[in-house]
Simulated assay, not measured.
Amino acid sequence: MKVTARAVRSGTWWAIEVPEVPGVFTQAKRLDQVAGVVADAVATMTGADAAAVEVQLVPAMRPEVQHDVDEAIRLRREAEEARASATEQLARAVDDVLREGLTVRDAALLLGISPQRVSQVART
C-alpha cells in the first residue's frame, strides 16, 4: 500500500497527515522517523501489514526555505556531473599525453596533478 505523509513543522515536532487514509494523523520528532510512525498508524487504522506500507514523505517548508533546499540539491547534482566529466576528461588527457611519450612526471607537471594521480587515472 502506497501512502503520502504530508509533514508540517509544529514546534519541535513534525505533524503528519496521510490523505489516502482518512483519520490518520501522527507526529515525529525527526523526518527520518516519519516512515515508521506512518506505517504503524496506517496499519493500525486499516489492518494492513506495516511492512507493506510504502511511505512517500512530503515535508512542507516555507517557500523561501524550500527554494534554498531545491537550489542546493540542483547545484550539488550539477557539481557531481561536472566532477564526473572532469574525471573522464582528465583520464583522456593523461592517456593522450602518455601516448605522446611524455614521462609520468612530465605529464603530472603539464596537467597540474601529482605523478601518483597520473598513474591512478592512466588507462593505457
Rank of each mutant, 00 (worst) to 15 (best):
Q116Y: 06
S10F: 06
M61D: 08
M45K: 12
L111F: 11
K29L: 13
M45Q: 07
A50C: 05
T26F: 01
A35I: 00
V58Y: 08
S114K: 09
A82F: 04
V65L: 09
T4M: 04
V21A: 06
D40T: 03
V118P: 09
R83W: 11
A28P: 01
S85G: 03
R117K: 14
A15R: 15
R76Q: 14
V37W: 01
T87F: 07
A48V: 02
G47K: 07
A86V: 05
R117A: 02
T26Q: 02
W14V: 11
R77W: 08
Q66R: 07
A39W: 05
R77N: 12
R99Q: 15
L57A: 04
R99M: 10
L110H: 11
E64M: 04
G101V: 10
R117I: 14
R30W: 07
R74C: 03
L102C: 05
P115S: 08
Q89M: 01
V8M: 12
A86F: 00
E71V: 11
Q56S: 07
I16K: 13
T46E: 01
A93V: 01
T103F: 08
R62W: 04
Q89V: 01
I113G: 10
E54I: 10
T124E: 06
G36D: 15
R30I: 02
A15C: 07
T26H: 03
A84W: 02
M45I: 07
E100G: 12
A91R: 13
E81Q: 06
T46Q: 03
A60D: 15
A5Y: 06
A41Q: 00
V97Q: 04
G11I: 04
L90E: 01
P115Q: 09
L110P: 00
I73Y: 11
E20S: 02
L109Q: 09
H67S: 07
L111V: 08
D49H: 12
G112H: 10
A41I: 01
T4D: 12
R77V: 11
R99P: 05
L102I: 05
A15S: 15
R92H: 13
V58E: 14
R6G: 01
M45L: 08
A91N: 00
V53P: 05
V104R: 15
G112A: 06
P19N: 06
R83M: 08
R30L: 12
S10P: 00
I113M: 04
A5M: 12
D106K: 13
A50N: 08
Q33H: 09
V18F: 02
A60Y: 14
